[in-house]
Lab assay of single mutants.
Amino acid sequence: NITNLCPFDEVFNATRFASVYAWNRKRISNCVADYSVLYNFAPFFAFKCYGVSPTKLNDLCFTNVYADSFVIRGNEVSQIAPGQTGNIADYNYKLPDDFTGCVIAWNSNKLDSKVGGNYNYLYRLFRKSNLKPFERDISTEIYQAGNKPCNGVAGFNCYFPLRSYGFRPTYGVGHQPYRVVVLSFELLHAPATVCGPKKST
Rank of each mutant, 00 (worst) to 15 (best):
N1P: 01
I2L: 02
T3P: 06
T3E: 03
N4F: 10
L5H: 08
L5R: 12
L5Q: 09
P7A: 13
D9G: 02
D9K: 12
A14E: 01
R16E: 06
A18N: 05
Y21H: 03
A22K: 03
A22D: 08
A22G: 07
N24K: 08
K26L: 09
K26I: 14
R27L: 06
S29Q: 15
S29A: 07
S29E: 02
A33S: 11
A33L: 10
Y35F: 11
Y35P: 07
Y35V: 14
Y35L: 10
V37F: 02
V37D: 05
Y39P: 11
Y39G: 06
Y39E: 15
N40Y: 02
F41K: 11
F41I: 12
F41R: 10
A42V: 09
A42M: 06
F44P: 05
F44W: 06
F44I: 10
F44N: 03
F44S: 05
F45D: 01
A46V: 13
A46M: 12
A46K: 04
A46I: 11
A46S: 10
A46D: 04
K48S: 02
S53E: 10
S53A: 06
P54L: 05
T55N: 15
N58T: 06
N58Q: 06
D59T: 02
L60R: 03
L60S: 07
T63E: 11
T63M: 09
T63S: 06
N64P: 05
N64L: 10
N64Y: 06
N64I: 10
V65A: 02
Y66S: 01
Y66T: 03
G74A: 05
N75Q: 04
N75Y: 05
E76H: 11
E76Q: 02
S78E: 14
A81Q: 02
T85A: 08
T85S: 04
T85N: 14
N87S: 06
N87Y: 14
N87G: 02
Y91H: 07
Y91N: 04
K94R: 11
D97S: 06
D98Q: 04
D98P: 04
D98A: 04
D98T: 03
I104V: 05
W106Y: 11
N109T: 04
K110C: 14
K110V: 02
S113T: 10
K114N: 00
K114T: 00
K114E: 00
V115I: 10
G116P: 00
G116T: 00
G117Y: 00
Y119R: 10
Y119G: 12
N120A: 15
Y123V: 05
Y123W: 05
L125A: 13
L125Y: 06
F126R: 04
F126Y: 14
F126P: 01
R127A: 00
K128H: 02
S129A: 05
S129F: 12
S129W: 14
N130F: 10
N130Q: 14
N130M: 02
K132S: 03
F134T: 05
E135Q: 03
I138Q: 11
I138K: 08
I138M: 14
I138L: 04
S139N: 08
S139R: 08
T140P: 01
T140D: 13
T140I: 04
T140Y: 11
E141L: 09
E141V: 12
I142M: 15
I142P: 12
I142L: 12
A145F: 15
A145P: 00
A145K: 11
G146N: 04
N147K: 11
N147V: 15
N147G: 09
K148P: 11
K148V: 09
P149A: 15
P149V: 12
P149S: 06
P149L: 03
N151A: 15
N151R: 02
G152V: 05
V153L: 12
A154I: 03
A154E: 13
G155L: 01
G155R: 09
F156W: 01
F156E: 13
F156K: 04
F156V: 13
F160T: 07
F160I: 14
P161N: 05
R163G: 10
R163F: 00
R163T: 14
S164F: 12
S164T: 06
S164K: 08
G166V: 13
R168H: 11
P169H: 00
T170L: 10
V173C: 06
G174Q: 04
Y178V: 15
V180I: 00
L183I: 02
S184V: 11
S184A: 06
E186N: 05
E186W: 01
L187G: 11
L187K: 10
L187Q: 08
L188M: 15
L188A: 15
L188S: 14
L188W: 11
H189A: 14
H189D: 12
H189F: 06
A190V: 02
A190S: 08
A192F: 06
A192Y: 04
T193R: 01
T193D: 03
T193L: 08
G196W: 04
G196A: 15
G196T: 04
G196F: 05
P197V: 05
P197K: 01
P197W: 13
P197E: 02
K198D: 04
K199M: 04
K199R: 14
S200Q: 01
S200N: 10
T201C: 08
T201D: 09
T201A: 10
T201G: 10
